[in-house]
Design a protein around this nucleic acid. Structure first.
Length: 430
RNA sequence: UGGGGUGUAGUUCAGUGGCAGAACAUCUGGCUGUUAACCAGAAUGUCGGAGGUUCGAAUCCUCCUGCCCCAGCCA
């Protein structure tokens, strides 16, 4: 008998097949059982009728517990009453392993309980839908850059010092000296862009900040493209093209999953380029118009970002920030020395910053000055200066926070469900 | 690091000074089309911990502790 996956079950109507999976839920009793069987690709209802199966199989149905692993053999029928439209008329069931007291019942649970059992929570329908969408976001991102001639140049995870010199790093021992877990691959991507023209990296990123909000993880994934000869406008064009591509691809390929998590997709359908682009100063005026007391020169808080993004149906770029609140490597606006050529992309619906980036400083003299101003150890940046010594060109790039994009597309209230095993300040397990 | 909230059965919660409760899960029995099935019955407790007030504390007080939410930092 052929072993098939539930996601392909419609191709097997009227045929006898074998499904290998786990018991998701069970209903009824007496002379009839409805078993909801999942195999990782979907859930199907298995119907067991006394007399149509041997006694051993029927008695087994009495014993079966939630998440027991089993192999079901029978005929696939279309039936309106079955969830999913198809069911399997059981001939025989083989028990693989009997689960005892599975802790996650098909009833509401608290977030602490579920996160402690994250290794089992992954089996639930909603978490599967979210993580499948995450997978599609990753595939879409990779396809996007791969199809446009970008070369994958992954940055190291162990770094000798801070990339940006601002945030708190995780320190670890490295053969008698200190090493730090990367907080950004950007400086390395700049080296890559000078070698390959268009590059990106995609890997885990670590921030030891003691953030305790729904928008932060200590370990998260970031994709960072970097392109030689790109200015700030080229950079924003690339970012908006990329984000609309990713969102439209998820809408196209993950309809079922979006339905399971009950996402209002009408809001995502509007996410097509071009996106609105406003300057920091214009953003400050929006805040003031909305009655917020905000001083030019400060950075936006979470609430400020929500007010700004709520003015638009699409993600919105905010560009040309005060240089004082941005990293040392950002190029200044030639029209106004106070401004840095940075750009953030704020997602709609209050999801905040999903992209941060900008044009990089390409002059050796200015960069040396900035390092000094920021009190950064010059030795650590010698190799970085080389990029400005040997054929320096204008260049730009940005970082996309994967979990923030996934949380936004899925409409999640917290980043921790957007990654298989979340790491936050108070959570290192499972 | 600040501000707020919370901790009671396996789980989700109710219980504001007088016998420790409900629902779901579990177990027993019933049901031939269930949709988080339903019906009847049973079992289930270090009320986060320590100390105090009281005839009597889950409940009031003090300290400790776990977790959740918000802010800051940022993707």
């Amino acid at each position: 008998m052929e072993w098939v996956y539930i996601e392909n079950i419609s191709e097997y109507e009227g045929k006898e097949v074998e499904i290998k999976g786990w018991l998701y839920n069970k209903r009824s009793g007496g002379k009839l059982f409805f078993l909801l069987v999942r195999d990782g690709t979907g859930i199907i209802q298995a119907v067991v009728v006394k007399g149509e199966v041997d006694e051993k199989t029927f008695n087994l149905c009495e014993e079966l517990t939630q998440e027991s692993s089993l192999i079901v053999r029978g005929k696939i029928n279309a039936d309106r009453r079955a969830p999913g439209g198809f069911e399997i008329q059981v001939k025989e069931i083989e028990l693989v392993h009997l689960a005892k007291d599975y802790p996650i019942t098909p009833k509401p649970h608290g977030i602490t309980f579920l996160l402690d059992l994250r290794h089992l929570w992954l089996r639930s329908r909603k978490q599967q839908a979210i993580l499948r969408i995450r997978h599609e976001v990753i595939r879409a991102l990779r396809d996007y850059y791969d199809e446009r001639g970008f070369v994958l140049i992954d940055a190291p995870i162990f770094t000798p010092s801070a990339c940006e010199g601002t945030t708190t790093l995780f320190e670890t021992q490295y053969f008698g000296t200190s090493a730090y877990l990367t907080q950004s691959g950007q400086l390395y991507e700049e080296a890559g862009a000078m070698a390959f023209g268009k590059v990106y990296c995609f890997g885990p990123t670590f921030r030891a900040e003691k953030s305790k909000t729904r928008r932060h993880l200590t370990e998260f994934w970031m994709l960072e493209p970097e392109v030689a000869y790109y200015d700030l406008d080229d950079n924003m064009d690339l970012a908006e093209d990329c984000i609309s591509y990713v969102v439209q691809r998820v809408l196209d390929r993950k309809k079922e999953e979006l339905k399971i998590i009950e996402r209002d997709t009408s809001k995502l359908e509007k996410v097509v380029k071009p996106f609105p682009k406003i300057s920091y100063t214009e953003a400050v005026n929006i805040l003031k118009k909305n009655g917020i007391e905000f001083e030019w020169g400060n950075d936006f808080g979470g609430k400020d970002e929500t007010i700004i993004s709520n003015q638009f149906e699409k993600p919105v770029f905010v560009h040309r920030f005060p240089a004082a609140i941005k990293a040392f490597y950002m190029k200044r606006d030639p029209l106004d020395e106070k401004l840095a050529l940075g750009c953030d992309l704020l997602a709609p619906e209050g999801y905040g910053e999903i992209i941060g980036g900008g044009q990089r400083e390409d002059s050796l003299e200015i960069l040396e000055k900035r390092i000094k101003e920021h009190n950064l150890p010059r030795e650590a940046f010698e190799w970085y200066f080389d990029l400005r010594k040997y054929g320096s060109v204008p260049h730009s790039g940005f970082g996309i926070g994967l979990e923030r994009v996934v949380a936004w597309i899925c409409g999640l209230s917290h980043l921790r469900e957007a990654i298989p095993f979340p790491r936050t300040i108070y959570r290192l397990s499972p």
